[in-house]
Design a protein around this nucleic acid. Sequence first.
DNA 1: TAGATTGTTAATCGATTAACAATC
DNA 2: TAGATTGTTAATCGATTAACAATC
Lengths: 206, 206
Amino acid sequence: MPKAVVSRLSLYLRELQALVRDDNKTISSTKLGRLLGLTDTQVRKDFACFGQFGYPGIGYRCEELIGEIRRILGTDRIWPAAMVGCGNLGQALLGYRGFQSQGFSVQAAFDIAPDIVGSNFCGLKVDHLDSLPAVVAEKGIQLAILAVPADAAIEVASILVKSGVSGVLNFAPVTLNLPKSVSVVGVDLAMELEQLAFAVVKKGEK
Amino acid sequence: MPKAVVSRLSLYLRELQALVRDDNKTISSTKLGRLLGLTDTQVRKDFACFGQFGYPGIGYRCEELIGEIRRILGTDRIWPAAMVGCGNLGQALLGYRGFQSQGFSVQAAFDIAPDIVGSNFCGLKVDHLDSLPAVVAEKGIQLAILAVPADAAIEVASILVKSGVSGVLNFAPVTLNLPKSVSVVGVDLAMELEQLAFAVVKKGEK
DNA sequence: TAGATTGTTAATCGATTAACAATC
DNA sequence: TAGATTGTTAATCGATTAACAATC
């Protein structure tokens, strides 16, 4: 499965779910492409990577595609996850409903600040970071959302690795160099704004 | 400038800034590549896109590269920005220091909830959304950070467009189909977790 | 000089697009 | 049947990598 395709799979999934919410049963590659800014050919080629799902003359059945994409992404099951760092951002993310609906369940939260440890956010009690290894093992947590300050990120990440976590979603603006066995996806808000600034500048030049 | 290169520019910038903080004056393509998981050839090829900056036998001067990358991205100036939506996520983002340091200054914040409008976050008073067009014009705001609920995003985005904003950083999990004159960068936290889940599943299969 | 490292060419690899027969 | 749409081939385009002469 080409990695360019995988990165679009989540995009297709989100759009297909919106289509189903609006009571669409089927969608053509042309219409789906237009919604997402892709060509019809690209949509069909992407879907062809995992089988023949289309109905010539009709299009694709939304529900069928959704199921298939979730299976490929691995979100046809529930992933237990941990929120690591419950400051501003961590608290906001704990309140985000979108994780749950897409197959993720935040089942533990950690911090080290005395005024945060022990408090409750969205029905989840914040534990001390020291108890992370035990809780991760006990609850079978595989994914961690890392929302600690930049200067703590590398150290905390190594605790995550030692605890046996297999994936880290990193919100700290630092490069995490973890063992190959652990996957990392980084989200850097300043970097995203930079890309936006570039797009605006470029458009201005044209 | 190839767009694959642009997306790495922010990554180079962040790493170079970290190197400068650690008192490094120069860095070779091999070392920088190793830090970021890229090949030395790719690093050199990327930098070659915007001139000859390297010193054979020595490497690249960090400060010089930083200046050049900021100039290209357009972050050698300050971009006035607006936070649109000051719920959980918006408030957390207002508290984030990283924007400021990279060339972005959030100079206005908006919401519609009566208990939020008028309150203060990080020294910024939240205005009612109705006053957005006037404030955007007055302060010359070009970028908006959209942190409203999914079902409000499209409507609010169209207000942004009418107000003359040229770039939107969209945190709502919906596709924004805006005029070509407006740039959009989307950050969808559930999508990022899906990509992480896929990476973990794939690794497990190998 | 010897060692380190760049800039660049040519080769390879992967992704996108155009076109169209096959299908419903 | 006519119209809509898929799946797939071949062509094009863009990005990455290997190799190495040139430079400090």
